[in-house]
Design a binder for these strands. Structure first.
Lengths: 237, 237
DNA sequence: TAGTGGTCTAGACCACCCT
DNA sequence: GGGTGGTCTAGACCACTAT
């Protein structure tokens, strides 16, 4: 860490991570190369080994480095980079876009679980769950169509909630922290049933997000979110 | 860390993170509550403060905790949870599914950049880039349609590559590490032009992934991937 | 077996920002 | 001003695995 180096914005570990990243981008260290071990880098940068360790672990999580005990650290040959996106509360997402939020509950009932969901949830077909359908609006335009099943055994108190005025997404986020979640994206045509709810044509392509959460008791909820036509979901790296 | 506790799988920090997560899930600590500070938890668990710090930073990244100097650590009121997915090499993705990979280059040319991409890339309309279109197959079934623009100024050597037998995705992953990437998902109808390439109907809904990468020179590549009908992209949390 | 990363400790100092 | 988290250090021991 020589005098002329810029002051590290996020501390020395961040600075070292940036410097190592730069050496990889600029091909000073090439795909597959072994890089100096932690002790050597600690000496080079004039820091403790733990600091180098933190920096390199960060880059390994990003997928840029492969690290193995005894074998050392190498620049990844096929860097499998990762992207993350946050799962916002619908209302906050809509309001963040400067629109006024509203929602409409289409149905709320206790219903037997269809087979298509039972396996994924690890429950039995016909178990009684709470089934909700709702549309979320931004400035009165349909934004998202929600089709949700909630397992009351995993969420005590849910039976008494009326979702006409409170949105299920928000209630669950605040009251049912989860241990594990599954999430996937797909696309499907709106169809006769959903198209009118999103104010579009039946053949319109829609982005679909399916999400299921579990806590220590069992599955909490599974939800299918269909976004309005043209919606894009952004991720960061 | 009492004797009867299970041996922490990933070390003490992991154990502490799991225990804190459990206390939140089971409502011992509720949304908005202030939790004990690092020093107290270090005493309780019989570890150094740095170990507690590591555990709590992990949970803060997950979105379960809000941490602020002086104000302490609180259970997040609206836990904004994050999901991560990895961006695989198409060939590896197809082979991992047990299918045999092949691809077909539809076109490779040096072309003026259309306006729709210019702004996103920070280049000028009409700049000469390399334009590729290709289809990737698994067991001879169309898997993914790729429409890619590559900026040769950011990737020296690209001009000489013939992508008839080498796939661009793989070449770029190995030769053009990036500093920053943008990524988003959307859905669109296949259309007259793309439908035959994916062996489907023009109105079929397709999952679209758009991705753009940059290095220190400038934009490297922007690509639009259209997946075959029914494809789902899974993320983990 | 020996070299490498993984993790932890005890202590220190600092940055931030609530009160 | 003072309490909290953020980061670093020097050292230690351990886990894994290439050779």
């Amino acid at each position: 860490m020589t005098e002329r180096d810029a002051i590290p914005a996020g501390g020395k570990a961040t600075y070292i991570a940036e410097e190592v990243r730069r050496r990889i981008i600029e091909k000073e260290w090439r795909q597959g190369d072994r890089i100096p071990d932690e002790t050597e880098l600690a000496t080079e940068f004039g820091v403790a080994r733990a600091t180098v360790n933190k920096a390199l672990q960060l880059l390994a999580e990003e997928g840029l480095l492969d690290r193995r005990r005894r074998a050392g650290t190498r620049v990844a040959i096929n860097p499998v980079r990762k992207a993350t996106f946050s799962i916002p509360i619908v209302r906050e997402q809509i309001e963040a876009a400067g629109l006024s939020y509203s929602h409409r509950l289409i149905s709320q009932s206790r219903s037997p679980l269809p087979a298509q969901h039972a396996e994924r949830l690890g429950l039995s077909t016909g178990d009684i769950l709470i089934h909700l359908r709702a549309v979320h609006y931004g400035d009165r335009q349909p934004f998202q169509l929600e089709d949700r099943w909630i397992n009351p055994r995993a969420v005590p108190g849910i039976e008494d909630v009326d979702f006409h005025h409170l949105n299920a997404n928000e209630w669950l986020v605040r009251n049912a922290p989860y241990l594990r979640a599954d999430l996937n994206f797909s696309a499907c045509n709106a169809g006769e049933h959903d198209a009118p709810l999103l104010d579009t044509k039946p053949e319109q392509a829609l982005l679909i997000l399916n999400r299921t959460t579990w806590n220590d008791v069992g599955p909490i909820t599974t939800v299918r979110l269909a976004f309005h036509p043209g919606y894009t979901m952004a991720a960061t790296t």
